[in-house]
């Protein structure tokens, strides 16, 4: 499956991902700038903040409780904000498109 990250400089990068990974891990593995994943994927640092493209919002699901609490104290939060460590890649998400917010 493929995922497209729109970077802070407005360029985009499409990378291949194995299903079953956290989207944050896919980004870190591919050195996507602006996604750090400091806490290791526990929704505890908000250094993997992304905006999910509107057509992918349903498929990526709802924020978890801890994710919601973290986003309440994070910069630049919008309706389509997610922590990418809380999105698991799957074949259904092939073609997923997110924008890197940076933290």
């Amino acid at each position: 499956m493929n995922v497209t990250f729109t970077l802070q400089d407005r360029t985009s990068r499409t990378v291949e991902a194995e299903p079953g990974w956290k989207l944050m891990e896919v980004a870190v593995d591919n050195a996507i700038p602006g996604i750090d994943g400091d806490c290791g994927g526990e929704a505890a640092c908000a250094t993997c903040h992304v905006y999910v493209a509107s057509e992918w919002r349903d498929a990526t699901g709802e924020r978890t409780d801890l994710e919601q609490a973290m986003l309440a104290s994070t910069f630049g939060v919008r309706e389509n904000s997610r922590l990418s460590c809380q999105i698991e890649t799957s074949e259904e998400l092939d073609g997923l498109s997110v924008e890197v917010v940076g933290s």
Partner: peptide, 12 residues
């Protein structure tokens, strides 16, 4: 960047 010095969670 994996360190605890900034704390994790809502008080990070």
């Amino acid at each position: 960047r994996q360190h605890l010095s900034f704390g994790f969670g809502i008080h990070r």
